[in-house]
Write a protein that binds this DNA or RNA. Sequence first.
DNA 1: GCGACTTTGACAACCGTTTTCATTTTGTCG
DNA 2: CGACAAAATGAAAACGGTTGTCAAAGTCGC
Lengths: 129, 129
Amino acid sequence: MTTRRDAVHDTLRRSEGFRSAQDVYAEMRQDGAKIGLTTVYRALQALADGGQVDVLRTDEGESVYRACATDAHHHHLVCRRCGHTVEVAGPAVERWAEAVGGEHGFTEVTHTVEVFGTCASCSSAVRAG
Amino acid sequence: MTTRRDAVHDTLRRSEGFRSAQDVYAEMRQDGAKIGLTTVYRALQALADGGQVDVLRTDEGESVYRACATDAHHHHLVCRRCGHTVEVAGPAVERWAEAVGGEHGFTEVTHTVEVFGTCASCSSAVRAG
DNA sequence: GCGACTTTGACAACCGTTTTCATTTTGTCG
DNA sequence: CGACAAAATGAAAACGGTTGTCAAAGTCGC
């Protein structure tokens, strides 16, 4: 039975940036969906496990999720003001991480890379207002 | 009065990798220090705010702290098995992050980069055992 | 010593997340 | 179409790291 999971996935796809489980839950309830918070958590975990959504932790320790366009390994450029997110590839970073790990004798090297900034429209909004 | 804070800082300096607040607390109590968990949390926050220690979040959402050798911007190569941590510089990554932000019109670009792996001694231990 | 201010820490509250478990839904075999 | 086993659901409780509360203890200037 994947209807709930699909509903969660759809809700996530409709969002521009990263959303917390509680965000998704609130939005679904807003839209009249009959779903429990537990199920949203479970669906998000399943989607994350299956690689259909990306997860990352906010500074406050909350898990946030995003339905990304590509399955391939990529990173995120996130607007810290509006949450607008761009998926970016970084072959240079991949190589760098591998190299750094190798230099120090580390194996099974993975990495987390996220870039934050203020997007064009947000910075012009700030300048204007 | 900074004695407690210094004690926390010292304990952290004695550790090789990143340690959680509760780790630090347990270790200090082990060593006979009379200190409360609340105070350890406050000290770590103060140290982090002052830039004297680095903070990052584990996958489980726990905050972990480390007294780093350098004040300068750097990243970490962390053994996911024993926590052994190497401070690494990555000028290429800094430039890449700036460039990626610029390309998409983002300003005030910051980034988080952490590299995880299994260190040499841990991977040989695994192979042996 | 005395009052004003700061720091401390036991404990309770918080909050996101996970677990529990009874109920509902789904899939499947007759 | 039943009927039953397995999976999914969700309300409520539990959990765990972290933060807030507040009274007691410490520190400083006098």
